[in-house]
Design a protein around this nucleic acid. Sequence first.
DNA 1: CTGTATCCCCAACGATACTG
DNA 2: CAGTATCGTTGGGGATACAG
Lengths: 114, 114
Amino acid sequence: MHKENSSDALNRRFLFKKCELNTALNIISGRWKAQIIHSIHNGHNRFHLLQKELTNISEPVLGRQLKEIETQGIIIKKEIPETTPTGIEYLLTGKGERLIPILDNLCNWIKENP
Amino acid sequence: MHKENSSDALNRRFLFKKCELNTALNIISGRWKAQIIHSIHNGHNRFHLLQKELTNISEPVLGRQLKEIETQGIIIKKEIPETTPTGIEYLLTGKGERLIPILDNLCNWIKENP
DNA sequence: CTGTATCCCCAACGATACTG
DNA sequence: CAGTATCGTTGGGGATACAG
């Protein structure tokens, strides 16, 4: 249960209004989210592939992070027809694709400013 | 006291090795950090100015976040000579300046992909 | 294969009070 | 003016077990 008037919640809303930057950071700042987005972009677009790629992630965490970035419109789920049990693949949306170069910029920024 | 071998710590180190992206995100994903960096860039470069700009931030939190981004080489502290009590101003380093356009990109990304 | 349910734990946020 | 000390609280990460 969330307390809607805790200082914590109020500060979050303050920052959201203050600048879109915080909305963006909120989307990608889950511990594994940026890595997940990158991995999907690189073709690891199935649940078990992501698990293998991110060797230490546990199922509940992976599931939660996937659901969040799906809600935020970064990825969509797609059923692979005529598979049993049902196969699911994850695909980046346009919004998700347009995030990739920005993540690359961040990556390069660290490389060039150690 | 930190536990160096908790899963939490291990996963952080795994992600750091995995991709520079996570190092970068770790730097800017404190709740107020990106906002602080932006505010300093816009001339709010004193402790009390930042407090006014970020209306709800408390001193301990502001102090901690400033110290962290200072440690990470995003800002430097500079004493203003011949003031009493001692005035301190915060300045972006080159590394900090080069982060600004990336933050702007994130901002625009959200604006253009609502 | 792709998840969800449950519960635990701690790092980080925040409030209050105090300091050089 | 520019912080630090202390402590309470909580959101979200993680382990284990279970499910469609």
